Amino acid sequence: KELVLVLYDYQEKSPRELTVKKGDILTLLNSTNKDWWKIEVNGRQGFVPAAYLKKL
């Protein structure tokens, strides 16, 4: 499993997105899109802007 660090808080703006908090370490599911990465948070899957995340 690949992990990502959340660099900035992000509030979901659609049902396909997820809310994340700065400092969270989460599972990366897909990073093929350069702008939006798919991650998992508490069993939910969704997208967060790639600029808000850093691969560990």
Rank of each mutant, 00 (worst) to 15 (best):
K1E: 14
K1F: 15
K1C: 11
K1A: 13
K1D: 12
K1G: 15
K1H: 15
K1V: 15
K1Q: 15
E2V: 11
E2M: 12
E2I: 12
E2L: 12
E2N: 13
E2Q: 13
E2R: 09
E2K: 08
E2Y: 10
L3A: 07
L3K: 10
L3R: 09
L3T: 10
L3Q: 12
L3C: 09
V4H: 01
V4C: 09
V4M: 02
V4A: 08
V4K: 00
L5R: 08
L5Y: 11
L5E: 09
L5I: 15
L5V: 13
L5H: 04
V6F: 01
V6M: 02
V6Y: 00
V6W: 01
V6T: 04
V6I: 04
L7T: 05
L7P: 00
L7C: 06
L7W: 03
L7K: 05
L7S: 02
Y8I: 10
Y8C: 12
Y8Q: 14
Y8M: 12
Y8E: 13
D9E: 04
D9M: 02
D9P: 06
D9V: 01
D9Q: 03
D9G: 05
D9C: 04
D9W: 03
Y10M: 01
Y10W: 09
Y10V: 01
Y10H: 03
Q11T: 15
Q11M: 13
Q11Y: 14
E12Q: 13
E12Y: 06
E12H: 14
E12M: 12
E12T: 10
K13I: 08
K13Q: 14
K13L: 11
K13P: 07
K13H: 10
K13S: 11
K13C: 11
K13W: 05
S14P: 10
S14T: 13
S14L: 07
S14R: 10
P15M: 10
P15L: 09
P15W: 09
P15D: 15
P15I: 09
P15F: 10
P15K: 10
R16Q: 14
R16E: 14
R16D: 14
R16L: 15
E17F: 06
E17N: 07
E17G: 10
L18S: 05
L18Q: 05
L18C: 10
L18T: 06
T19L: 05
T19H: 08
T19I: 04
T19Y: 05
T19M: 06
T19W: 05
T19R: 06
T19E: 04
V20R: 00
V20E: 00
V20I: 09
V20F: 04
V20L: 06
K21D: 04
K21N: 09
K21C: 10
K21G: 06
K21R: 13
K21W: 13
K21I: 08
K22N: 04
K22T: 08
K22D: 03
K22M: 10
K22L: 05
K22H: 07
K22Y: 05
K22I: 04
K22G: 07
K22V: 07
G23F: 03
G23Q: 02
G23R: 02
G23K: 02
G23S: 03
G23M: 03
D24R: 04
D24G: 04
D24C: 07
D24W: 15
D24T: 09
D24L: 08
D24K: 04
I25S: 02
I25C: 05
I25T: 06
I25W: 03
L26I: 14
L26K: 02
L26W: 12
L26S: 08
L26N: 07
L26T: 07
T27N: 12
T27M: 13
T27E: 12
T27G: 06
T27H: 15
T27W: 13
T27V: 14
T27C: 08
T27F: 12
T27S: 09
L28K: 01
L28N: 01
L28D: 00
L28E: 01
L29I: 15
L29P: 00
L29Y: 04
L29R: 04
L29N: 03
L29S: 03
L29H: 07
L29A: 05
L29K: 04
N30K: 07
N30H: 07
N30G: 08
N30W: 08
N30E: 15
N30L: 08
N30V: 09
N30P: 03
S31I: 06
S31Q: 10
S31R: 06
S31N: 09
S31P: 05
S31Y: 10
S31A: 14
T32Q: 14
T32R: 11
T32S: 14
T32W: 09
T32E: 13
T32P: 04
T32A: 14
T32H: 13
T32C: 11
N33V: 06
N33H: 12
N33L: 09
N33M: 09
N33R: 08
K34T: 11
K34Y: 08
K34P: 13
K34R: 09
K34A: 13
K34C: 09
K34E: 13
K34D: 13
K34M: 11
D35Q: 10
D35G: 09
D35W: 14
D35S: 11
D35A: 11
W36I: 04
W36A: 04
W36M: 07
W36S: 04
W36H: 05
W36F: 11
W37V: 02
W37M: 03
W37F: 05
W37N: 01
W37E: 00
W37I: 02
W37C: 02
W37G: 01
W37P: 01
K38Q: 14
K38A: 11
K38L: 15
K38D: 05
K38E: 15
K38W: 14
E40D: 06
E40F: 05
E40S: 08
E40G: 09
E40R: 05
E40Y: 06
E40W: 05
V41M: 13
V41Q: 13
V41I: 12
V41C: 12
V41L: 13
V41F: 15
V41T: 11
V41G: 15
N42Q: 10
N42G: 14
N42K: 09
N42V: 07
N42H: 11
N42Y: 07
N42F: 08
G43Q: 07
G43V: 03
G43H: 12
G43Y: 05
G43M: 06
G43I: 03
R44W: 06
R44Q: 13
R44I: 11
R44L: 12
R44K: 13
R44F: 08
Q45P: 07
Q45N: 10
Q45D: 11
Q45A: 14
Q45E: 12
G46M: 09
G46R: 02
G46S: 03
G46N: 01
G46A: 06
G46I: 06
G46K: 02
G46Q: 02
F47E: 05
F47C: 11
F47N: 04
F47L: 09
F47K: 03
F47D: 04
F47Y: 15
F47T: 03
V48I: 07
V48E: 00
V48S: 01
V48Y: 02
V48C: 05
V48A: 05
V48L: 08
V48T: 02
V48K: 00
P49T: 01
P49N: 03
P49V: 02
P49A: 03
P49W: 02
P49R: 04
P49M: 03
A50P: 07
A50F: 02
A50N: 03
A50V: 07
A50G: 05
A50Y: 02
A50L: 02
A51L: 14
A51R: 15
A51P: 09
A51E: 13
A51I: 12
A51V: 14
Y52R: 05
Y52L: 10
Y52V: 13
Y52Q: 05
Y52P: 01
Y52E: 01
Y52W: 07
Y52F: 11
L53G: 01
L53M: 06
L53N: 00
L53E: 00
L53T: 01
K54M: 14
K54I: 12
K54S: 12
K54A: 11
K54Q: 13
K54E: 13
K55T: 08
K55M: 14
K55I: 14
K55H: 08
L56F: 09
L56C: 09
L56K: 03
L56Q: 05
